[in-house]
Design a protein around this nucleic acid. Structure first.
Length: 416
RNA sequence: GGAAGAAUGGCUGAGUGGUCGAAAGCGACGGUCUUGAAAACCGUUGUAUCUCACGAUACCCAGGGUUCGAAUCCCUGUUCUUCCUCCA
């Protein structure tokens, strides 16, 4: 949630920045007006309530002294009606405010380039050189089927399209990757956590998936629970509604989970293969930081993910997301894109974001900042998406006969 | 799934209708004392919003209700504990 006080104080600046992200200015004006109206409604209610409280005290005194209370009772009853009315108005304003406030995205950082979609993201640097093949490299689904690693049809049989099944070395590689990543992250100070795959509405509101993106989520039928679209949701919300001590920061965490997404808006995109699945494995990094250190930890997380790709010998590049591609909660994001020879292009394999206090404000994650309480900064990023990493290994390490070389760092995890 | 009980501040735990944002203890922080520390003693110590400030309002699991007045009474829900049942 954006800072309403900041909006109040620097309306022009805030609305100009949000406009860059495509937010309708009238919506922001609306928010500001609602906030003003809410304040007035609150003061109004509190005035009546204060009167009620003092009259109630008087009432008690009258009774004790045996005075006649009929006249006072008339006044009290009249005031009560006003309280009810004032409270109704206040609640209504509050509700209206929240609907708008929760649907407004984070303010993009000044460093975020303007742009309407992913094509206008800015490349920051390339790491490792894409391999040269003296044959035409195959796409991963061909390789996966040829090696018997992944069965796309049986996934569909069990569930629906965009589900797949891994067999043998395919399944073992997934597991090896997960373990490798978690160990790698742990060596860099990220504490491993294992979290629920189902979360409630409050958690999803905290990190910003709700109320706006309910269509992308799988929801339980008989309970208000949702399958997590990313481990970011349970891990960040671990500290929801808490006031941490300064010494507890940073909280650096890593978690492996399955992720579930409806991919509602992606019909027709990446229909073949395992680039875009309804269920996929991911190892996630989350840092909860003191605001004055969040930039530093952001860089650290980007480096961690990039080094992981380097360790796996996978060519990749870093891109700075433009306003049009920037996620709802992010102030700025760096994507890591891995080279896929089969597609002859770089594809997203990790996305690292600093949400600053946007999620902290929603999830009420604070820390003792001297003698006051301040919101923390939350950062999240994929260590790597496991499925896409497997795809990248297949395509980059393929031989002409379709066999695939296993990256050295994974061999110990495969008993090789 | 069945039965009973519980939910209060960082923690433990008092509080059955008014002066309770809430006793007490512990912890934490500051101070006195000390060469330093411990002990002892004194003080401070929940959150949010409005206000320049004084102060005001709200919050004792959540939501309703009764009442002039609710931490306290009533209803609903949630969670937890114990016992039984079941079970990876």
């Amino acid at each position: 949630m954006i800072d309403l006080k900041l909006l109040q104080k620097d309306f022009d600046d805030v609305s100009a920045k949000l406009k860059r992200k495509g937010v309708d200015v009238t919506l922001i004006e609306n928010l500001k007006n609602k906030n003003d109206e809410l304040k007035i409604a609150k003061v109004n209610f509190e005035t009546f309530q204060a009167l009620q409280n003092s009259m109630s005290k008087e009432f008690g005194a009258y009774k004790r002294e045996g005075k006649d209370i009929t006249e006072l009772k008339v006044k009290v009853d009249a005031n009560k009606i006003k309280i009810t009315e004032a409270l109704d108005i206040q609640r209504q304003k509050q509700e209206e405010l929240e609907i708008i406030a929760l649907s407004i995205p984070n303010i993009p950082d000044d460093s975020v380039p303007d742009g309407k979609d992913e094509n206008e993201n800015v490349e920051l640097k390339k790491v490792l050189t894409p391999p040269n093949f003296d044959f035409t490299p195959k796409e991963h689904w061909e390789l996966a089927e040829q090696n018997g690693w992944i069965d796309f049809e049986r996934g569909v049989k069990l569930a629906t399209s965009r589900f797949s099944v891994s067999f043998g070395m395919g399944a073992r590689l997934e597991r090896a990757l997960i373990n490798f990543m978690l160990d790698f992250n742990r060596a860099r100070g990220f504490n491993e956590v294992s979290v629920p795959s189902l979360v409630n509405r409050g958690a999803l509101e905290g990190t910003g998936q709700l109320p706006k993106f309910e269509n992308d989520l799988y929801k339980m039928q008989d309970q208000e629970l949702f399958l997590i679209p990313t481990a970011e949701v349970p891990v960040t919300n671990l500290y929801q509604d808490e006031i941490l001590t300064e010494a507890e920061l940073p909280k650096k965490m890593t978690a492996y989970t399955s992720c579930f997404r409806k991919e509602a808006g992606a019909a027709g995109r990446d229909t073949r293969g395992m680039i875009r699945q309804h269920q996929f494995h991911k190892v996630e990094l989350v840092t909860i930081a003191n605001p004055n250190e969040s930039e530093k930890f952001f860089d650290e997380m980007v480096e961690c993910a990039s080094d992981l790709l380097t360790a796996l010998e996978l060519p990749h590049r870093l891109v700075n997301l433009c306003t049009g591609d920037l996620g709802f909660g992010a102030a700025y994001t760096t994507d890591l894109e891995v080279w896929l020879p089969g597609q002859n292009s770089y594809r997203e394999i990790s996305s690292i974001s600093n949400t600053r206090d946007f999620q902290a404000r929603r999830a009420k994650i604070r820390f003792k900042d001297g003698n006051k309480n301040s919101f923390v900064h939350t950062l999240n990023g994929s260590s790597l998406a496991v499925g896409r990493t497997l795809v990248a290994i297949m395509e980059n390490n393929q031989n002409e006969d379709g066999s695939i070389d296993i990256p050295e760092v994974l061999k110990p995890y495969l008993g090789m």
